[in-house]
Design a protein around this nucleic acid. Structure first.
Length: 467
RNA sequence: GGCACCUUGGCGGAGUGGUUACGCAGAGGUCUGCAAAACCUUUUACACCGGUUCAAUUCCGGUAGGUGCCUCCA
């Protein structure tokens, strides 16, 4: 499999260290608010990665974190984090906020047919591991303590910022953030933040350095290493994570272990809405339930995302979502032909095998989902024209299973029509043979009331769902 | 100010040094008892200006426009 590795900025052949098992870590959400479609787009992308790895024969140990503490509102902030802020906003505790939005996130994953990671881990459940990691770094001399916390000294880090290819000198000159004057370097980052004297936070823990909470980057290193070991095969995240979060993860992890933290780094680009960055201030953070109100399902969103490549900046528009929905419905109608394979149908097992091979090849080439869909659409066209041979029924179902496994569109979730509905179709065919067109049209209306459309082919009547 | 990316037909969106991406929408047609569906065809797409080349949308340089990151962010 070929994957684009941000470390080298090149497509590389991917093989896991353990040939049986891929160790994959994905940066998950901070659960202080609803996740919008932009947030979810990343998880659809990484779910696709997992699916393709699985289809390529690997077991995947997939860990995703839930950040339920410690992401500061800004670098210059005096200690308020998003959870605390959300709690203040809603008059609840930070713990309640985290639970509520994490539960909502999990529902969103299910709705989008994103597989549940092997481990989905909360930062607050791993405070001890994070403290241990800081202790290790302290023992190895990578830290210093100032009035508001324990910091990582990036000047001691070998190749700091290599992933981001940062111009550190330029970065410092152009820094707009007010630094804590005690910080030794502009890029140094907090490992443990101390609760200011006299204050009480919803979330705080005792530590060797005093009461406080872990720094922003610590959890990913501590939890990924706990569940996957010191070297990951693949670490994924949004493109925005490259310059700060991921270089800091690398710095602290590699300082602690002396080993490479992750062999591959994959980053997805952001989804725009109407060609604009999704931002709270722009009010364009569309939620899944907004789309549901307009009659779109989460799978329509999934289709929209599959039509673009994960490293491009895709654009979400109402028109594009409509188009994606139409395409998905056409695909579903094709899948429903498995209930209607027919003697004389021309699509045979070989056609399914061939398309599967093309799709898998495209997907294994850095997740070329648009090309995989194009190959699928070609087959759909052929199937609608020539119908599916009765001999190919098993191959067809197997093929659809492959498509569901890789693209996650749940094509096999539909069921056959009822025997009553089938009887109606037979009666209509009989009426047409008898040239009793009035009766035939009457039955067609009855079928329409059942949300079924029929089309008459030389080989017989084929139905499709209209809703 | 620094760094990076992008500019493809009505919309979305791939890809390639010479061959139809694909999807959605529109138009015409075929088929059909009819309607629908389905299928076929279709509007000569690659921002602009140079360069390299037998040949560039596809490589190089420049211009214009756009976006992202540098600051919590998928």
């Amino acid at each position: 499999m070929q994957l684009y590795n941000t470390l080298t900025r090149k497509l590389e052949q991917f093989e896991p260290t353990d040939p049986e098992d891929v160790k994959l870590y994905t940066c998950g959400p901070t659960v202080y608010d609803y996740q919008h479609i932009g947030n979810y787009s990343a998880y659809v992308r990484w779910d696709t990665l997992v699916r393709v790895l699985q289809a390529s024969g690997y077991d995947v140990h997939w860990v995703m974190n839930i950040t339920d503490v410690g992401h500061l509102v800004s670098d210059a902030d005096e200690g308020e984090d998003k959870l605390e802020k959300g709690a203040k906003r809603e008059g609840k505790s930070a713990w309640d906020i985290a639970k509520f939005y994490m539960d909502d996130f999990m529902l969103g994953l299910t709705a989008l047919n994103i597989q549940t990671p092997t481990h989905i881990v909360r930062a607050t459940d791993h405070i001890a591991e994070q403290i241990e990691l800081v202790k290790t770094l302290e023992q190895k001399g990578y830290t210093y303590t100032i009035d508001d916390g324990v910091y990582f000294d990036t000047s001691k880090s070998k190749d700091y910022g290599k992933l981001a290819r940062l111009d550190l000198a330029g970065l410092q000159a152009g820094a707009r953030v007010e630094l804590n004057p005690q910080k030794r370097g502009a890029t140094d980052f907090a490992l443990w933040k101390l609760t200011p004297t006299g204050q009480k936070r919803d979330m705080e823990w005792d530590s060797p350095w005093g009461k406080g909470f872990p720094g922003w980057h610590l959890e990913c290193s501590a939890m990924s290493m706990k569940y996957l070991g010191e070297t990951l095969d693949i670490h994924t995240g949004g493109i925005d994570h490259i310059p700060v979060h991921h270089i800091n993860e690398i710095a602290q992890s590699e300082a602690a272990t002396g080993k490479q933290f992750s062999r591959f780094w994959l980053h997805c680009n952001h989804l725009l809405v109407e060609n604009t960055k999704i931002a709270k201030s722009a009010g364009n953070g569309i939620l899944l339930h907004h789309l549901a109100e307009q009659g779109f399902t989460p799978l329509d969103v999934r289709m929209l995302l599959l039509q673009s490549h994960y490293r491009t900046q895709a654009n979400f528009t109402h028109g594009a979502l409509q188009a994606a929905r139409q395409r998905r419905l056409a695909l579903q109608a094709f899948a429903d032909l498995r209930f209607q394979t027919i003697d004389g149908g021309e699509l045979d097992a070989a056609a399914f095998e061939q398309t599967k091979a093309v799709m898998l090849e495209e997907l294994k080439e850095d997740l070329h989902t648009p090309e995989a869909l194009a190959a699928l659409s070609d087959l759909v066209t052929a199937g609608e024209t020539n119908l599916v041979s009765a001999n190919a029924h098993a191959a067809f179902v197997e093929f659809l299973d492959f498509v569901d496994a890789t693209l996650g569109l749940q094509l096999l979730a539909s069921s056959d029509i009822t025997s009553e509905q089938k009887q109606l179709i037979r009666e209509r065919e009989e009426a047409r043979r008898n040239k009793d067109f009035a009766k035939a049209d009457q039955i067609r209306l009855a079928l329409d009331a059942n949300h079924l459309a029929v089309r008459d082919t030389p080989l017989g009547t084929i139905w499709s769902r209209t809703a």
